[in-house]
Amino acid sequence: MTRPDDTTTPAAPWEAFLTDADRRVREVAGYGADGPRPARPVLLVIDMTYDFCGPEGADAVSAARAVRTACGPAAWAAVPRIAQLIAAARAAGVPVIYTRRDAARLAARRTKTARGAEDDPAGNEIVAPLAPAPGDVVLGKSKPSAFWATDLDDRLAALGADGVIVAGCTSSGCVRATAVDAYNRDLPCLVVADAVFDRFESSHALALFDLQAKYADLVDTGAAVALLSGDHASVSQTMPR
């Protein structure tokens, strides 16, 4: 994507939701400056399970009706892009860490939906096109952030990782929480904007805006593949502010 004033390509998804005052504040305050690029990243694939994707081929409402947490078409559209990221990471020897719900701790969690009792443990499996390979790590978590009450910090330290590249779902939930916790640790975080998604279009757009403004850098799949492959020079900037 290019900057919003370039009429040859679509504007960033959040632009439709911003007021004129929002745009001016962003401009005068300087939000969205590019951060450092990690030299030894880890690829985090957040919650790419059947519970969060839902039935393939279903529209958004039908998917949510079938599985309360499903994101439907947005999820399945992201699957091939995430597969590209995973393939690039494995080819380059970059560690791949998946997250999903920690089944043992789910019963104690708070839920904000009226359908929480419907959860099926079988839905907690990673979707088949993105299935973990030997050597990949699958972390269980009970809260949105991949860092919360997991051993992710220790794993990153053991790997000598100096940053994370994040794909998966949801943009406004677990992706955002993970990116904010990476920021809290002074850990560079790149969010792959076309490989994250949400069940709500507005939440997705404004989560990306907020992440880009304050906590992370947004890149597209092509740029992330280049970075995973060690080609830092060809990626000069992030997506539009």
Rank of each mutant, 00 (worst) to 15 (best):
17 F>W: 14
17 F>L: 10
17 F>Y: 15
17 F>A: 12
17 F>I: 01
17 F>N: 03
18 L>K: 05
19 T>Y: 09
19 T>Q: 08
22 D>Y: 11
22 D>L: 09
22 D>C: 10
23 R>D: 03
23 R>A: 09
24 R>G: 00
25 V>N: 05
27 E>N: 04
27 E>W: 06
28 V>Q: 07
28 V>F: 12
28 V>W: 09
28 V>P: 01
28 V>I: 15
29 A>F: 14
29 A>P: 00
30 G>S: 13
30 G>I: 13
31 Y>A: 15
31 Y>L: 15
31 Y>E: 10
32 G>L: 11
33 A>I: 12
33 A>E: 13
34 D>E: 14
34 D>I: 01
34 D>W: 01
34 D>T: 01
35 G>S: 08
35 G>C: 11
35 G>K: 09
36 P>C: 07
36 P>L: 09
37 R>K: 08
37 R>F: 10
38 P>M: 08
38 P>F: 08
38 P>L: 10
38 P>R: 11
39 A>K: 14
39 A>L: 15
39 A>C: 00
39 A>W: 03
40 R>I: 07
41 P>D: 07
41 P>F: 07
42 V>C: 02
42 V>I: 06
42 V>L: 02
43 L>H: 04
43 L>Q: 06
44 L>N: 00
44 L>P: 00
45 V>T: 08
45 V>E: 01
45 V>L: 02
46 I>F: 11
46 I>W: 07
46 I>Q: 11
46 I>C: 14
46 I>V: 15
48 M>Y: 05
49 T>M: 12
49 T>H: 06
49 T>N: 08
49 T>I: 11
49 T>R: 05
50 Y>C: 00
51 D>A: 15
51 D>Y: 09
51 D>L: 14
52 F>P: 00
52 F>R: 10
52 F>Y: 15
53 C>R: 02
53 C>V: 11
53 C>E: 04
54 G>N: 03
54 G>V: 03
54 G>Y: 03
55 P>L: 05
55 P>D: 12
55 P>W: 03
57 G>M: 09
57 G>S: 06
58 A>Q: 10
58 A>Y: 12
58 A>W: 04
60 A>D: 09
61 V>Y: 02
62 S>L: 10
62 S>A: 15
63 A>T: 08
63 A>E: 12
63 A>H: 11
64 A>S: 14
64 A>W: 04
65 R>T: 07
66 A>H: 06
66 A>I: 00
67 V>S: 01
67 V>N: 03
68 R>Q: 08
68 R>A: 13
68 R>V: 08
69 T>F: 06
69 T>Y: 06
69 T>V: 07
